[in-house]
Structures are given as C-alpha cells and as structure tokens.
Design a binder for these strands. Structure first.
Lengths: 233, 233
DNA sequence: GAATTAAAATTGGTTAACCAGATTGGTTTG
DNA sequence: CAAACCAATCTGGTTAACCAATTTTAATTC
C-alpha cells in the first residue's frame, strides 16, 4: 500500500465505509476510550462485509492509534479521550491524497530540519555512511548516468543521522512517491546533476564541521536549484 | 497498530524476518524494479510462515512504496530504481521506535509550518472550524476541566486548514502518541491551561489576519510554555 | 454465602479451501 | 505466417473452518 492507503485503502472505499460505520456504531452505543468493540465476526455480519475487510479497517485505525487489538481478548478503543478520538476519526475519513506539491513542501520542511539535527548529532559512522552515498552519487553523475536514486539515498542517510526516528520514518514514507513524481515530470535529468555534486559536497562538509546553520543554508541552496529546475521547464 | 508497527510489526519480529528474507530473495534472484515477486503461496512455503504473515509483510512494504500488489496478477517491485529500493529496505529494517523527544521535535517542526500555511490558505470555513475547537477548549478550561484533547483538536484543525495533506496525515499519526505521552508524564495539567487560552486566541487571530509570520511567532510562544512546563517539573 | 475451581463460550489470529479475474501457451483460423 | 481465440493455469483476494489463549459462567467446596 502506497501512501494512498491512508486515504483510499485497498478496496477503493470499502474500508472507508467500514470506518464510517464504526464511527456511527461508537456514537450510537456511546462507546468510550477503554471500551471493547464488538467482535470482528459480529461487525462483519452487522456491516455486511467480510471479516478480512473488518480486520483491515481495524488495522488502519490501529495505525492511527485509535484502536488497539488484544489477541484472544478483543479490540479496544485507545485511551486518547473521547473527544480526540471522535475528532480524529472525522479527520481520518476526510484525508485527501497528497499531491506532488504537498510532498515537496513536506520534504523540504523535513530536510531543512534533519540536516541541522544531523550536523549536531552525527557520529563518525553516520558521517562515513553519508560519504559513501555521496561517492556513489558522484560516480554515477560523472559517468553521465541518471542518479536520482543515489541522490535520495544521500538525503535518507542524513535523515538517519538526525537520530530522530519519526522524521526518518516520514522521509522513508514520502521518498518513493517523490521518486515516482520526479520521473513522471522529468525533474532532475542529467545536466543539473553536475551542480548537484558541489551542493552535496557543501552539505556534507557542513555536517562534518558540525555547523547546523551552514548545513541548513547549503540544503536550502540545493533545494532552490531543484525548485528552479522543477518549475522553469 | 500504533506507530510501532512501522518498526515492530504485529508479531514482534516475524514481519521483520520476512522482510529480511524478501530482501535476501531480491538480492539472490537479482530482481529489479518492475519484476514480479514469487506468489504469496510460494513465499509462505519457502519462508516457512503463514500466507497471512507474508501478506502483512507485503502490505507494509506497499505502505512504504517498495512493492505494489495487482489483484489476480501478482506482487511487483515498484519503479523506484534498484539502488533506492535496496537502500530503503535496509533503512526500513533498521527503523527504531520513536521516543517522546522524537515525537515532540517533529510535532513542533510540523506545526510551525502548518500554522504559517494555514494563515495563507485558510478559507472562511476553515476559520470557523478552528474557532469551534478553540471555543470547546475554552469552555473546558474555564470549567476547570482537563482539556488536552480539545487542545490537540485545535492544532489538528490548523493542520487541516494548511491544505497540505501530507503534513495533515503526519499530524494525525503522531497525535495519539503525543496524547498518551502527555498523560503518562502529566504534561498539561490544569493550571497552565489558562495561559493556553490566550495563546490559542493569539494564534487564531494571526490566522484570521492571514499573517503567517505572526502566526508562527505565536505558535512558538505556545510551544515554549509547553516545553517549560514539560521539562521544569 | 463467599471463595475456588473447572468447564463452556468468546476472542483475535491462523490455516486451508475457494473465487473471479488475469495470464499464458497452444491451437485454430484467416 | 500472423492474428485471433480458447482453455488450462496462476494470481491476489475472500470466505469459512479451526486454534489457542482468554474471559465468562456455573458448579463445587468449605
């Protein structure tokens, strides 16, 4: 499931229907956090869908922290408060698919932070890993080859060095969609990559020097070039 | 599944084992993006696990955009390039559970951005929704009640008004864990909430005036109070 | 009548059989 | 020889039966 599963689900709306019915049930029965939901069997019968579909919907709500399944016991509403739970349910149902702009905006935000954190927190091992991805990138570019993947691995290595697991996870979630869109819109073709080498080197040097402000500046420059290439063609 | 599923999986490591085996298989068979994976049945037999476990592992990798299942056809490696795919697989296997610090850091980063975007992009309807959550928050606080949930719904309403679906999704993902940790560490108990009212009002006014810089400043003030309360007790 | 224990029912998880649509290979047909 | 066709096969998805752990209920004991 790509990111779309957060909105569409596997079956193009079936999950959404089930979540809506679950919300109605919670409202109708006035279920509160900590309460037990009816069993999967009862829900599948009540909603007229398969038990697997019910399970998938429950898993999705578990992912968002609203439900919690206990083996051989039942599915419970998480202890996040009734109002928060209901508000979040509504928000989840209204989630839209992220467009390219949304992804790029978020990526830039995340990376301007991860590069600062990486400057402060990177170990020597992190630094070496980043260096390796940078060398792989350089080799590809100097041989005139496409290096979009190596580019992104460099950025992911920085995210990992930031020591912030949440941001690292989020970067991993959006990266494949970024790649897909880059290839779709032919961003990052060969010629601008030569500039990219120096930009990457600058970022690496700033992280090595443990200068967060400089690192952020260099990352900003890097994204500016990307942006220009992206929107001026 | 809470956020931990991104690292642990449902069965505390079974999924991780399967993903490692999938990685080895991809290496061994030298599978490239676009190639078809062996069928779920074959994989479950080859790995000595149930087909459901294989399906869950595949779903997880679909979520991260590395695989793509086509009904009645097969599971394929996404077109994100072989190097990116392999690098991401390694990163996913190494993901750690996010601690409280990681969550708060990410939340602040996201919200300082969403509040700026909301200032620029909010419709009248968005504004009204934000107002409603603020009023609900005020009422609770003025009655001396706990208002953590209403607080967070206010922030989620801003995220929604930012019109950035990715950031909105990420906010929804981290919110339940934030709530859980807040209650765990007794952050945000009643007395500081009175300050919170004015801070929320200030943020609301900035969004209403469509002044992104002011909105960001007021949000920063809001988080500073939170931080102080959080770490000085 | 209260505490203890055992058995019956209920639960999420697992397994295996089944389904409809897609794929494939060989055959037929022009 | 190529294109069209069809049936056998393979696919992810679905369904239903099954499992072991848990929870509830009822019986037993003091």
């Amino acid at each position: 499931m790509r990111m779309e599963i957060l909105t569409k689900g596997d079956n193009e709306g079936v999950q959404k229907d089930i979540i809506e019915k679950l919300r109605d049930l919670i409202d109708y029965k006035n279920l509160e956090p900590g309460d037990k939901l009816p069993s999967e069997r009862m829900l599948s019968e009540k909603f007229g869908v398969s038990r697997s579909n019910v399970r998938e919907a429950i898993q999705k709500l578990e992912f968002f922290g609203i439900l919690k399944s206990k083996p051989q016991s039942g599915t419970f509403i998480a202890n996040i408060g009734q109002i928060a739970m209901k508000g979040m349910l509504e928000d989840i149902l209204k989630l839209e698919d992220p467009g390219f702009k949304s992804l790029v905006e978020t990526r830039i935000l995340l990376e301007l932070k991860t590069v600062k954190l990486a400057s402060l927190r990177r170990t020597e091992e992190d630094l070496q890993k980043i260096r390796e991805t940078l060398d792989a990138y350089k080799e590809k570019v100097l041989n005139g080859k496409d290096a979009v993947q190596e580019d992104l691995l460099f950025h992911l290595a920085i995210a990992k060095a930031s020591k912030n697991s949440t941001m690292n996870t989020f970067m991993l979630i959006i990266t494949p969609e970024i790649i897909t869109n880059f290839e779709k819109y032919h961003v990052c073709d060969s010629d601008q990559s030569f500039m990219g080498i120096q930009e990457h080197e600058d970022i690496f040097e700033a992280i090595k020097k443990q200068d967060p402000q400089l690192a952020r500046e260099k990352m900003k420059v890097h994204f500016k070039t990307l942006y220009q290439y992206c929107y001026n063609t």
